[in-house]
């Protein structure tokens, strides 16, 4: 067992974990933060994307011990005081989801894009989301939602 201390969505957790524990399993099974889904288990789909120390990562491809001392934001940390973020609102308003399974990862990847490129073209949005798969193939509305959010004052 290895001792870790990780801040997740604003709360600091101290835990003893097996080194082989994946960050996504730590978030879901230990902390109960099931807003982050497991999609493919092969690093391809991006459903489990979270932020680690300010950048997007696939939480199935990070060990919990690697997040020791770090700060994680999951989709559950986006809304503040029950208010959806502008990006979440845009996904709602543009109907950017069908089954919703890819949505947490899409939101986290899009947040990353909007931090680096506050006003991306639709081409740039598509490239930024290339690591996130939507099996409903609802990409058109996802791109529209990210674009709509980028027109807001505080997009992500």
């Amino acid at each position: 067992m290895t001792h870790i201390s990780v801040k997740v969505d604003g709360t600091t957790y101290e835990d003893d974990v097996e080194p082989r524990l994946l960050l996504v399993h730590y978030l879901r099974d230990r902390l109960g933060l099931t807003g982050t889904p497991i999609g493919c288990d092969t690093s391809n789909c991006g459903a489990c994307t979270v932020e680690l120390d300010g950048v997007s990562v696939k939480s199935c491809s990070v060990l919990a011990v690697q997040a020791d001392g770090g700060e994680v934001t999951t989709v559950e940390g986006l809304a503040q005081d029950g208010e959806l973020s502008a990006l979440q609102r845009a996904f709602h308003e543009k109907h950017a989801l069908q089954c919703g399974y890819c949505t947490p990862g899409m939101l986290m990847a899009a947040r990353d894009l909007l931090r680096e490129h506050p006003h991306p073209t639709s081409e740039e949005i598509r490239h930024a989301l290339e690591g996130n798969l939507c099996r409903c193939t609802g990409y058109q509305n996802i791109v529209r939602a990210v674009q709509a959010a980028s027109e807001q004052e505080v997009p992500a």
Binding site: S43, G46, T49, V55, S56, V57, K58, S61, V62, A109, D112, L113, A128, E130, G131, N132
Partner: peptide, 9 residues
Amino acid sequence: VADPAVRHR
């Protein structure tokens, strides 16, 4: 290489 999230790590 891969995608933005993979390139971060």
